[in-house]
Amino acid sequence: MSFDAVAQQPKLLYLLQGVAAFAAVVSLIVLALHRGPVRRRAAALILLAPALLLLTTGLLLPALRTLALSFTDSGGDTWVGLDNYVWMVTDHQARVALRNTLVWVVVVPLTSTAVGLVYAAAVARSPFRTFALSPVLTPMAISFVGAGVVWKFVYAYRPAEAGQIGLLNQLVVAFGGEPRQWLVDSPWNVLFLMVAMVWTQAGFAAVLLAGAIRAVPAELAEAARLDGASPGQILRRITVPSIRPTLLVVLLAQAIGTLKVFDIVRTMTGGQFDTGVLAHEMYDQTFRYGETGRGAALAVLLFLLVTPFVAHQVRARRRTG
C-alpha cells in the first residue's frame, strides 16, 4: 500500500464516522416521531434540534467568543475594555476602512441596481430576452477573485515608453494621453475597485427585475404610451412603483454583499493606497499583524452594520409572505 493511501485512511475513517453519526441522529428522530402520538410543537422541536445544535456550535458560540475577544489585547488574554473600539475611531487606517466601506455600501448597490433596472426594462418584454440577458449574467459565473484579476489587468500600468498591457491605458495612449496608475491615486482608486463589483452584480439585479417587470400588466404601459408618456416617464412612474418590493429586495441583498466585500480589494490592491475596507482590515489585523482583539472588534462592527439590513429583509419577506 502506498504512503498516500495510508495517509488518506484517517480522513476516510473520520468521514465514515461523521456519516454514521448523522444516520444515527436521523434514525433517532424518526424513531421518536413514530413511537406514538407526538404533539406538533414537540415534533417541530425534535426536527429542529440538529439544526439548532449546529447553529449554536457553528454560529452563536463563535459570535460570543468574538465579542469577548474584542475586549482583550492582541493575545486574547488581557482585558482592555473599550480600547479596541477607541482605536477604531482614532486610527487613520481603521477610519479609512470604515469610510471606504460606507462609500461602497452606498455606491455599489445603487449603481448595480440602476444598471440592472435599465437593462431589464430594455429587454424584459423582448422575445430575445434570454439571449439579451446572457452578457450581463456571464460575470456572475466568475468569482470575486477572478473578477479582481480581470479588472486588475484592465487597469494595468506601464511607463509611457513601454507597451501597455492594460486595456484602459491602451485606450488612453491611443487617443494621445499619458498612461495612469489607476489603482494608486486616492480616492479615485476606490471607485475603480467598485467597477469590478458592479460588473459582477448588475446581472443579478437585471434577472430579478426583468422577472418583476414582466409581471406588470402591459396594459398600464400601453395606456401611458397612448397618453403621450415617454419611455423614461413610463419607467419612473409606472414600472418602478409596480416593482418596488423586488427593487427593495435587490438593494438589500446588494448592500449586505457589499458590506462584506473582501476578495476584490485583496486581489487588486491588497488594501494599499487607502483602499482598505472593514473586512480586509479585519483580516490584516488578525492574521497579518497578530492583533486578535482589534480584528474581533472590527468583526463586531461589521456584524452591527449588517444586522439592520438583514432584519429589514426578514420583515419584508414576512410581510410579503
Rank of each mutant, 00 (worst) to 15 (best):
A124R: 02
S126E: 03
P127T: 13
P127S: 09
F131K: 01
A132F: 06
L133D: 07
L133H: 06
P135V: 13
L137V: 04
T138K: 09
P139V: 11
P139A: 13
M140L: 13
I142C: 11
S143M: 04
S143W: 01
A147Y: 06
G148Y: 04
G148N: 07
V149M: 06
V150P: 01
V150F: 15
V150M: 15
W151R: 07
K152L: 12
F153R: 14
V154P: 00
Y155G: 02
A156C: 08
Y157F: 14
Y157M: 10
Y157L: 12
R158T: 12
R158S: 10
A160S: 08
E161V: 07
A162S: 08
G163S: 12
G163P: 03
Q164L: 01
Q164K: 07
G166M: 05
G166R: 05
L167R: 02
L167Y: 10
L167G: 06
L168D: 06
L168Q: 04
L168T: 05
L168W: 03
N169R: 13
N169T: 03
N169D: 09
N169Q: 05
Q170Y: 14
L171E: 02
L171Y: 10
L171T: 06
V172N: 08
V173A: 14
A174S: 12
F175V: 11
G176N: 04
G177P: 01
E178W: 06
R180K: 14
R180D: 13
R180N: 12
Q181H: 13
Q181Y: 01
L183Q: 10
V184H: 11
D185R: 15
D185S: 15
S186W: 14
P187Y: 05
W188Q: 15
W188G: 14
V190T: 11
L193M: 14
V195I: 15
V195F: 05
V195M: 11
V195C: 07
M197C: 03
V198W: 07
V198T: 12
W199G: 09
W199R: 10
Q201Y: 14
Q201P: 00
A202E: 06
G203I: 05
A205T: 07
A205D: 09
L209I: 04
L209F: 08
A210M: 08
G211L: 03
A212S: 12
I213E: 04
I213Q: 06
R214V: 04
A215S: 15
V216W: 03
V216F: 10
P217D: 10
A218R: 12
E219S: 13
L220D: 01
L220V: 02
A221Q: 14
A224E: 09
L226M: 15
D227M: 09
A229C: 13
S230P: 00
S230E: 09
L235R: 03
L235M: 11
L235A: 03
R236V: 08
P241L: 08
I243D: 09
R244I: 03
P245Q: 09
P245C: 10
T246H: 05
T246F: 09
T246Q: 15
L247T: 01
V249Y: 00
V250I: 07
L251A: 12
Q254Y: 00
Q254V: 00
I256S: 00
I256V: 01
G257N: 00
